[in-house]
């Protein structure tokens, strides 16, 4: 599997040269736009990390987790996974760190460990993605987009815990 991407890129570059495209010039031209894009995203990322880190450092995040553990347990989500599910929409690296904690505390091949894996693999960093996608556009109102994505991720979590029981 891991061979596919390097091979595709090599094939593309060779094909472009064969087609007499200025490969070097196009690559540099494309890469030039990357700097502006990344700089545009920076303030949004900082603001989001500020909120998430303050929640964790002040201990309020812990209360939120305890508070939500009870309703989520009715949906079949173990309480060890509530923190993972809550942080997942905000931060990929943060939720990866929690995933590792879950593995170390509860074991990789246990029910909780497998659920955590499926949740991590099938959900996405909704708020992070929205910050990155809409930075540098005029979009102020995102309508149904974020609620739909969050709800789908919640359903994904419930489904993940169920699938791990069955499969």
């Amino acid at each position: 599997m891991s061979m596919i991407v390097p091979c595709l890129v090599a094939l593309l570059l060779a094909f472009a040269l064969f087609k007499k495209v200025d490969v070097y010039g196009s690559f540099v031209g494309g890469a030039k736009n990357a700097v502006g894009t990344a700089v545009g995203v920076l303030p949004y990322l900082s603001a989001m990390f500020l909120m998430v880190n303050l929640l964790r450092a002040s201990g309020i995040g812990g209360y939120v987790v305890d508070f939500l553990a009870f309703p989520l347990s009715f949906l079949g989500i173990p309480k060890q996974l509530v923190e993972l599910m809550l942080l997942r929409p905000f931060s990929g690296s943060g939720s990866l760190a929690i995933l590792k904690d879950v593995y170390l505390q509860h074991g990789v091949d246990t029910y909780v460990g497998r659920c955590a894996s499926v949740i991590m693999g099938s959900s996405e960093t909704v708020f992070y993605v929205s910050a990155v996608y809409f930075a540098g556009t005029k979009i102020k109102h995102t309508g149904w987009a974020i609620p739909i994505a969050l709800f789908c991720n919640l359903v994904g979590g419930v489904l993940a815990c169920w699938l791990c029981k069955v499969l």
């Binding site: 593309l12 540099v28 031209g29 494309g30 890469a31 990357a34 990344a38 920076l42 990322l45």
Partner: peptide, 23 residues
């Protein structure tokens, strides 16, 4: 943290926006 993630993103963007421009 915001800056370091943005720098990481910038590196990934540089690579892929370059490759996509060729495509």
């Amino acid at each position: 943290q915001g800056i370091s993630v943005a720098v990481e993103l910038c590196a990934v963007y540089c690579l892929w926006m370059g490759v996509f421009a060729v495509a």
